[in-house]
Write a protein that binds this DNA or RNA. Structure first.
Lengths: 271, 271
DNA sequence: CAAATAGTGTCTCTAAGACAATATCAC
DNA sequence: GTGATATTGTCTTAGAGACACTATTTG
């Protein structure tokens, strides 16, 4: 007993060199955009939060929000804190998607990044109302396989377009890693972090564990379906989608009216 | 351009306090043990590598193999290195399963742990032949839900029995976290790391991405089935299992003979 | 021959995909 | 009424579970 106390008293953690540790977060939301006739339902777009870097390194490049782990907090708390600092939104859900520790990934020195994916509802984003001229913007995301087998990640926001190219590499346990072929102007190895996060998001969306976080408390089944289709980049027949989610949702007595067509019943996530 | 150089030259990373970073690995293997008549196929047991700590803190407690991240290596390389140092086996597969960064988890100070699961074939383990008296032992694993909803993790090796109790807590994205109710004598928060790793292993085993790593290059379908049943703790009818894996394996011309019954064809993992 | 596993075939049941048909509103 | 989505039902098909049956070896 005493000897353990003695040991700890004499123990100095400063003997070994230590890395800096950050949490970087790929925060996604889905934006609905009016399009076409008054009757037609709005288009959905998957969007990712990027921050324009004000200081070196990668000054003026776009990057994921993130920051250094502080003493006394967990890495999850750090990720949540960084998102809150940038958006004033308290995200409902975050998910770890990997640790990026390749030596040399950050020119400032030995810095390893814990990557997270976060999902934020459009409602929350709207409520906060981000400054249009700000250095934080929601970029439209597209991520597809090219003919050559590489993956192209394209992020657009108004005039700004970033386009990164990545090579997918299978690792054990059926996992996939991404190696950056062209960062497309994104800071650090953030292109690879985004690709990894997006893959994780798509995997989770399959099991209906994630898609509810993009929506408010109550929603129509069409809204839910559009969310899933936007994330997964596939489409399902509405009739079949209803069956698939039926066990995950429960009816409310409310309906969404005034959309130019038959009102839709609002549903709620089942516990 | 020059200003970035200037910035980096003047930048000192030592301004901020930094944590120590470790990789801890839950390395699993499956051991076959002769049992009953000469005809009967051997029993399979899932085993986990634990190290008896020689120094403080948690002196003489059992712990996961692990160690500090060194400059110039990735965290994955660190995990592989730690396993190799303990077993002399180069694991084929490792998978990250989370970061444990709760303040106070290590009495030595601010130390965060990157947890990995690794899978090692019995063949490799046997070839190395670990010292029986050594401080590294393969413990039998059982992990089940109790009536109260808590989870009991039991690790046994000969006379030694460690029994930890954990509370499962659902987090977002359908993930589960474990909180330690009783560490059962395991060092640090390693009981929670093991529980998390085992859950991840079971999830992966469903999709046939992992089970091959427990076996040598060629194997019988019964061997493969027993591996899956041992990990998942469920059983399937042999006829149905064959159908399920048929697309993941390919026949060889070899047979396994001399087992007291009809010889079984050896299969190989399909690319 | 007996005991054990190896391997095949087939019936059922469930869930997903396709598609037809009806319902209901805003304009 | 028209154009859109909402909602229900049904046919088909793919895959998992159950089970009966045959094949082959060793002691």
């Amino acid at each position: 007993m005493d000897s353990e106390k003695e040991f700890l008293a004499g123990y100095s953690i400063d003997k070994y060199e230590r890395p800096s540790v950050t949490a970087d977060v790929a925060a996604f939301t889905i934006s609905t955009e009016e399009s076409g006739s008054y009757r037609r339902s709005p288009e959905n777009k998957l969007r990712l939060l990027l921050i324009r870097r004000g200081g070196h390194p990668y000054k003026d490049c776009w990057a994921l929000p993130g920051g250094f782990l502080q003493k006394g907090e967990t890495i999850e708390q750090c990720a949540l804190r960084e998102i809150f600092e940038e958006t004033n939104v308290q995200p409902v859900s975050i998910m770890p998607v990997g640790v990026f520790s390749e030596p040399g990934r950050d020119p400032r020195g030995w810095i390893i990044s814990n990557a997270y994916v976060s999902v934020i509802s459009e409602e929350s984003v709207r409520q906060v109302g981000m400054d249009d001229a700000a250095d934080a913007q929601w970029f439209c995301v597209s991520f597809d396989c090219t003919e050559t087998g590489a993956h192209r990640l394209t992020l657009t926001c108004g005039e700004i377009a970033l386009s990164a190219l990545l090579a997918a590499e299978k690792t054990s346990f059926g996992r996939t890693q991404y190696r950056i072929l062209d960062s497309g102007g994104l800071a650090f190895d953030h292109a690879a972090i985004i690709a990894t996060g997006l893959s994780a998001l798509r995997t989770e969306a399959k099991s209906f564990d994630t898609i509810f976080d993009f929506l408010p408390e109550t929603f129509t089944l069409s809204q839910l379906q559009k969310v899933q289709e936007t994330i997964m980049n596939v489409s399902v027949l509405p009739a079949n989608f209803r069956r698939m989610v039926s066990s995950y949702v429960e009816e409310t007595d409310e309906f969404l009216r005034g959309e130019g067509h038959r009102p839709a019943r609002l549903y709620r996530r089942k516990v």
